[in-house]
């Protein structure tokens, strides 16, 4: 395991409060109920395939919580799908989630390992055969066939340590897990 020396730990700063995360890990080990979070989003149809989804409140640490402000996301389809393109397509939001989750993981793991980051950039490509969603071929799935993420990282660390950062960030990523493993999804009509 790459471990920063004490001096490293105090001088490097990726802006992640790792101590708070480590403290939370210890505290929640003995309090699994407090670790139960519910993330929420509410969506409203606008017109055509255009919708607006709002996110602000969530539940965690045993009580209702809230982001500082509400975030609003617009989804639509591009003009090549004969839509108005008021926003990105829903499946692109998955790429946003994956990239931001892995990036956050890289920063946290780097902080924990005493590695100073100078820049972290990534590109995410989801390969998608749209014959699935169009019902043109029943052997083609609806979702991505595969996703490729490429990181370019500038940091005070060897290539091997950087690869280890990226591997560890996948290992601890919520979105990576949600995309690579099946999840029960129940959709009901209220």
């Amino acid at each position: 395991m790459t471990k920063g020396t004490l001096r490293d730990m105090t001088t490097i700063d990726n802006g992640v409060n790792v101590q708070a995360l480590l403290d939370a890990r210890e505290a929640l080990k003995g309090a699994p109920e407090a670790a139960q979070f519910t993330w929420r989003a509410s969506s409203k149809w606008q017109n055509g395939v255009h919708s607006t989804t709002r996110v602000q409140h969530f539940f965690g640490l045993g009580q209702e919580q809230s982001h500082k402000s509400e975030a609003v996301f617009t989804a639509d389809h591009p003009e090549v799908f004969a839509a108005e393109d008021n926003g990105i397509t829903p499946i692109e939001y998955l790429l946003v989630g994956l990239a931001s989750c892995l990036t956050a993981g890289v920063a946290s793991v780097a902080q924990n390992r005493g590695i100073q980051l100078r820049s972290v950039e990534s590109t995410v490509e989801g390969h998608h055969d749209i014959r699935g969603i169009l019902g043109a071929d029943s052997d083609v799935r609806n979702g991505f066939n595969d996703i490729k993420v490429t990181f370019t990282i500038d940091a005070d660390a060897s290539q091997e340590d950087i690869e280890a950062l990226v591997a560890q960030s996948q290992k601890r990523s919520a979105v990576f897990d949600a995309l690579t493993n099946p999840t029960n999804v129940s959709v009901e009509v209220a």
Binding site: V166, A167, Q168, Q170, K171, D177, L179, T180
Partner: peptide, 12 residues
């Protein structure tokens, strides 16, 4: 159903 994260367990 198997995880799609095979590549990463190899890397680790």
């Amino acid at each position: 159903l198997f995880s799609g994260g095979l590549r990463n367990v190899f890397s680790l």
